[in-house]
Measured scan of single mutants.
Amino acid sequence: MEVRTIKVFTTVDNINLHTQVVDMSMTYGQQFGPTYLDGADVTKIKPHNSHEGKTFYVLPNDDTLRVEAFEYYHTTDPSFLGRYMSALNHTKKWKYPQVNGLTSIKWADNNCYLATALLTLQQIELKFNPPALQDAYYRARAGEAANFCALILAYCNKTVGELGDVRETMSYLFQHANLDSCKRVLNVVCKTCGQQQTTLKGVEAVMYMGTLSYEQFKKGVQIPCTCGKQATKYLVQQESPFVMMSAPPAQYELKHGTFTCASEYTGNYQCGHYKHITSKETLYCIDGALLTKSSEYKGPITDVFYKENSYTTTIK
């Protein structure tokens, strides 16, 4: 009895394709271990004539594949690729409408935090270190965002349907971005203890939790000093293409032309909904596939993004 075979390709990165001759009487799992086709788990399936010449994702289970996976995804987590594939199996079914010149995501599976993050990423200057993220990001900007969303979920250790947080998501993504040249110098002034300067680099240099107003941050924000008295913390120097200011959701007025974009969060910790506000020729609110415009805006804002380049204080 002759062994019926077909020729397929296996890959971990969709760049390096490895030619395989597979036995049609055995499952993919018996031949390769966990195997995925377009995100779908085909591990328990036997090869079919229609699979001839198709590319299958496999887990990096030998040295060659491990090197290829690390170079593309910059992670050695053995569960990463499987999590990416199972997320992709959902995100490829989502709709990605162009809204006001940006790629958004039609609401499904509690994905409003991903839509808000995706919209924000198209408006701030950011370059990702893992080629996987950078490639998928370019495709997302062009309207094909399924891979990018699935990668975000995998890097953030999230599953489809789980509630997510924009600030946490951005923080994970910033860790995989090139923020080497970003720098922030802060000064804390206390009447009792004097003053202390701190220099922050990388992710810490672009994120701040405690106030939404970048102007206020430049002037000074009140913080408790270690001595128990009130101290003032203010920005001395900022070198970065953008800054992200966050605070627990509270009524906040966004003035046209003073910011790049913002995240609105309605609801409580267990259950809520994100919308995205962007400042173009007027203010726009993007909620999944829905767009509304207004000249002014007041609502429960939790993150505001500002364009920056270089700032030095005039406070002496």
Rank of each mutant, 00 (worst) to 15 (best):
P78S: 09
T116G: 10
Q270D: 05
N309A: 13
S181D: 10
F9W: 05
I286A: 06
E239Q: 12
C271Q: 15
A115T: 11
T169A: 15
Y284P: 04
A69H: 15
S263H: 15
Q237P: 04
Q216S: 11
C225R: 03
L17T: 04
H74W: 06
G33A: 01
K233H: 13
V22I: 14
V189N: 13
K54C: 10
D41W: 05
K275H: 04
T11P: 01
L254M: 10
P78A: 14
E296I: 15
Q238G: 09
L59A: 07
V304W: 04
V3T: 13
T103D: 05
Y311F: 08
G202S: 04
Y57G: 01
I286G: 05
N187V: 11
Y214M: 11
T27I: 11
A289G: 05
Q216T: 15
K183M: 06
G220C: 02
S294R: 13
M170K: 00
P131L: 01
K275A: 08
C193S: 05
F217P: 06
T64G: 12
R141M: 15
K219R: 10
A146R: 03
S171L: 13
G257N: 10
A40N: 14
D63L: 07
Q237W: 10
A87C: 09
E68S: 08
Q175V: 04
S50V: 09
Q123L: 03
L37T: 08
S246V: 03
Q20S: 13
L283N: 10
Q20I: 11
C285Y: 07
Q270N: 11
P241Y: 02
L119N: 01
H48K: 15
H48D: 12
I286K: 05
A132G: 14
V99C: 09
A69F: 07
M245C: 11
L163N: 02
G299P: 05
D23H: 09
D135Q: 14
V221Q: 06
I223T: 12
M207L: 12
R66M: 09
T43V: 05
T27E: 15
D180S: 11
V21M: 13
T211C: 14
A205T: 05
K127R: 09
T278V: 10
T312S: 14
K307F: 06
A145R: 01
L118P: 06
E308I: 12
L119F: 02
Y208M: 07
I105R: 00
A136K: 01
G53L: 14
D109R: 04
G257P: 05
K307I: 12
E264R: 06
T198I: 10
I152M: 13
T292E: 15
V304H: 04
R139S: 09
Q216A: 15
D303K: 05
Q134A: 09
Q196P: 05
Q123F: 02
Q196I: 07
S213Y: 04
S294V: 15
M26C: 12
D38Q: 11
S263P: 04
N49Y: 10
T314Y: 11
H74N: 05
P224I: 14
M244I: 02
T260M: 14
Q251D: 15
D180E: 14
S295P: 15
V206P: 03
G143E: 02
Y28V: 02
F148W: 00
D38M: 10
L163T: 09
G82R: 08
E239W: 06
P130W: 01
L37P: 00
Y311I: 09
K280R: 10
Q30L: 14
G194P: 09
F174L: 10
G82T: 10
R4I: 14
T292D: 09
Y284F: 01
A108R: 15
D77R: 03
T27S: 14
L186D: 10
K275F: 00
Q30C: 08
V185L: 07
Y137N: 03
V304D: 05
T192S: 12
L102Y: 11
F128P: 02
C225L: 02
W94Q: 00
V185I: 10
M170W: 02
F174R: 02
P78D: 12
C182I: 07
Y36G: 07
Y57A: 08
N178K: 09
G33I: 02
K316T: 15
S171F: 08
V203W: 13
C112A: 15
Q122H: 08
A150Y: 02
I124L: 12
P248L: 12
K54R: 15
L290V: 04
G228A: 01
V221P: 03
L65T: 15
A247V: 04
Y274L: 07
H176A: 05
G164T: 00
H48V: 12
Q270I: 11
V243T: 06
A40D: 14
V189C: 09
G210P: 05
K229R: 10
E168N: 11
G164A: 07
L88Q: 00
E264L: 12
Y234M: 07
V189G: 03
N49F: 14
W107S: 09
Q251S: 15
N129V: 07
K183P: 06
I124N: 02
L173F: 00
D63V: 09
P131Q: 09
D109E: 11
K46V: 13
Y214R: 05
C285E: 10
C271V: 15
Q175S: 09
E68A: 07
S181F: 10
T302I: 03
